[in-house]
């Protein structure tokens, strides 16, 4: 049987909002989920964030539909329709001979609108995949370090310190660059790591887990002393069961909160790598790559910077708003 330990001040019963006049206020029992939702829905900014994220996710999923609608495949070029004779891309237009270009053209004369919405796919896929890797590694190592303490904790904490000391961005640049163009017989991890979104997500995830591991470790160090852990142990539960069936559910709140906060970080890392030219391959749309290209045109093609930048900003802001809202809802002490 699993048992969820809840801090007293986060599971308080609440008073019914409209008690009958003269009657003693009725105490209504609510589940933790209900309490969370009641708090979260009061956070208007967080709800706006959720709305933006749903919108962007929908746009990302529907990107092929949008591309079909405007008749501009993601890599289709319109060199003679959408550039000046000197090769400078043309801006947003509803009446070009090649159709509607809501966001204008990019530096390779492709429909920037289509590129941007496909870029949402790239950002979300890479960020979510990287975050998943970070969670698996970070939570596993964090729980083990906090639960076992002693040598295991020393080893994992030392490992975390080593990772913190690494020049992560430089290593990411090196690994993505080295694995980005492989020769036969020189594949990264025996060919497991192929250039593309997977490689970028893997590299971000592998270097990002120590942050979450350290947070989880701190939580577990406290939780392992609680009575419900003692109770489980006295009933003969194995360490694995205690760690992953008893303690893990009790650290879900910080995991969820932290997840929503590292996703935008990972989106920005992917954009940064692509901005530096070593993220996803050039044929895959990416907001970072689009912004990189825009730097060469910022004086004559404002749209190339504004639209990808707007989407990147909105997405990261939305994740942060949601993350803040979740944190407040899970833990009112920090609100």
């Amino acid at each position: 049987m699993s048992q969820t330990h809840l801090e007293p001040d986060t599971v308080e019963d609440e008073v019914s909002p409209e008690p009958e006049a003269g009657a003693r206020a009725e105490i209504v029992g609510r589940s933790p989920g209900q309490i969370f939702w009641r708090r979260f829905r009061k956070d208007k900014l967080a709800l706006v964030g959720v709305f933006i994220l749903i919108l962007i996710a929908a746009i990302a999923l529907a990107a092929p539909l949008f591309a079909n609608l405007v008749g501009h495949p993601v890599n289709k070029q319109f060199v003679f329709e959408m550039t000046t004779p000197g090769g400078v891309p043309l801006g947003p237009t509803l009446s070009n001979e090649a159709g509607v270009f809501l966001f204008g053209a990019d530096g390779t004369a492709r429909d920037l609108f289509v590129r941007v919405i496909y870029g949402a796919q790239t950002s979300l896929i890479v960020a979510l995949s990287a975050t998943a890797i970070e969670l698996v590694l970070g939570v596993t190592f964090g729980i083990m370090a906090g639960f076992y303490r002693g040598r295991v904790d020393s080893f994992i904490s030392g490992l975390i310190d080593v990772f913190f000391a690494l020049p992560v961005l430089l290593l990411m640049l090196g690994i993505v660059g080295a694995c980005g163009a492989q020769s036969p017989g020189q594949e990264c991890l025996g060919g497991l790591l192929q250039p593309g979104r997977g490689l970028v997500a893997f590299v971000i995830g592998v270097f990002g887990w120590p942050y979450i591991a350290r947070i989880i470790r701190g939580q577990v160090l406290s939780l392992r002393e609680k009575e419900f852990v003692e109770a489980s142990r006295s009933l003969g539960a194995s360490n694995m069961r205690i760690m992953f069936r008893e303690i893990l559910p009790n650290v879900l709140a910080p995991i969820i909160v932290y997840t929503t906060l590292i996703i935008p970080t990972n989106i920005l890392i992917e954009a940064s790598l692509s901005f530096l030219g070593i993220g996803v391959p050039p044929s895959i749309p990416s907001w970072g790559a689009a912004l990189n290209e825009a730097t060469s045109y910022y004086r004559v093609a404002w749209w190339m910077m504004v639209f990808p930048g707007m989407f990147l900003f909105a997405t990261t802001l939305a994740f942060n708003l949601v993350g803040d809202g979740l944190r407040d809802a899970f833990d009112p002490k920090t609100a």
């Binding site: 890599n75 289709k76 390779t108 980005g180 163009a181 030219g277 070593i278 391959p281 050039p282 044929s283």
Partner: peptide, 21 residues
């Protein structure tokens, strides 16, 4: 390369563009 890739697709050639230093 991206423009050449577009042209080559017309005769069934697919180019994976990779970038290095």
């Amino acid at each position: 390369l991206e423009t050449m890739s577009s042209s080559m697709e017309q005769v069934g050639l697919t180019m994976n563009i990779k970038t290095l230093t």
